[in-house]
């Protein structure tokens, strides 16, 4: 039973991530008074891209060729360590939160190299911006997760989820602050507003899209899919750690079914919040981003200080 649940849970992220992207796009379209494409359009896009011929730059080396597979593999491996439905069905060696942060960094590292690999100006600029943002995000991410770890007295994500769900409400002030810090880090890591505009291909504004400009065909599909996975990973990590109520701590049918429904609701709420945010605020100028990331870092620190006092 727990094996089945484990496989189901591990496939949940790659399975649902295009849907989340589709939902966010749909909501944004409605905000802009457009009809918008179907929420299943990202699946069709992926399918289409997998059946297109591919152009690879003659300048590119093996780094460019193999990065998409590595990136996709990293997101799959990470998602096996995140409890979404049941904490019993996660792969516990992957549960350490620092490992999570640094596995994400591994993917970013190679994607930035791939951006430089083709010798295009866009790719290089995108890599530079991506690494700048990623370097500054890491602090806020580590601090927000660490403050929860301090409260839960464990650094394992599954055990953190179990511990936070029984912490009394009066103790949760640091968790709320840490969540804000985490949310900012999420927006930065997943290339959302106000850090990056996922919908544009204008060289002034783009970070993530600039790096992957030279990809096409199946490799583009993999990179896009991996980016969607990353978004859902961050969303589900955020909901699981900061709002862990309802996640099953065993593998029985009824709690797991309830947990699954709750999980879907939670990620839907997060997706809506991201879409609303993107429709209502403007993208920040690049050199204003450090302020926001510093805010995330300081909020994380405050959360830690409240926890340990």
């Amino acid at each position: 039973m727990s094996i089945i649940l484990f496989i189901f849970q591990a496939l949940l992220i790659p399975g649902l991530s295009p849907l989340i992207v589709g939902i966010i796009r749909k909501i944004k379209a409605r905000f802009q008074n457009r009809q918008g494409a179907s929420i299943f359009q990202p699946y069709r896009d992926l399918w289409k891209l997998f059946h297109k011929d591919e152009v690879i730059s003659e300048t590119a080396s093996w780094i460019f060729r193999y990065t998409p597979y590595l990136l996709f593999a990293v997101t799959i491996v990470i998602s096996a360590g995140i409890p979404m439905i049941s904490t019993m069905a996660t792969f516990s060696p992957l549960g350490d939160f620092l490992l999570f942060v640094y596995l994400i960094a591994l993917g970013t590292f190679f994607l930035a190299l791939a951006g430089l690999d083709t010798g295009s100006v866009f790719g290089g600029t995108g890599s530079s911006r991506e690494m700048t943002v990623a370097a500054l995000t890491e602090g806020g991410l580590i601090f927000s997760l660490f403050s929860v770890a301090l409260l839960a007295k464990t650094a394992n994500i599954s055990e953190m989820v179990n511990a936070i769900s029984v912490v009394p409400f009066s103790m949760l002030a640091p968790v709320v602050i840490a969540f804000i810090a985490f949310y900012i880090a999420l927006l930065a890591e997943c290339a959302r507003y106000p850090f990056d505009n996922p919908a544009t291909h204008l060289e002034l504004t783009m970070i993530h899209e600039a790096m992957i400009l030279e990809y096409s065909g199946k490799r583009l599909a993999l990179v896009e899919w991996a980016a969607a996975n990353k978004l859902l990973i961050f969303i589900s990590l955020g909901t699981s750690i900061f709002f862990p109520w309802g996640i099953a701590q065993n593998v029985e049918i009824v709690p797991v079914a309830i947990a699954l429904i709750l999980f879907l609701i939670k990620i839907l709420v997060m997706a809506v919040s991201i879409a609303v945010l993107e429709s209502t605020i403007a993208k920040l100028r690049f050199f204003r981003l450090p302020d926001l990331l510093l805010t995330s870092l300081v909020l994380g620190m405050i959360a830690i200080i409240i926890t340990v006092i």
């Binding site: 997998f50 297109k52 011929d53 690879i56 730059s57």
Partner: peptide
């Protein structure tokens, strides 16, 4: 069934 074409960077 898809081909990989080697071409210069855009």
């Amino acid at each position: 069934r898809q081909k990989e074409k080697i071409y210069s960077t855009w």
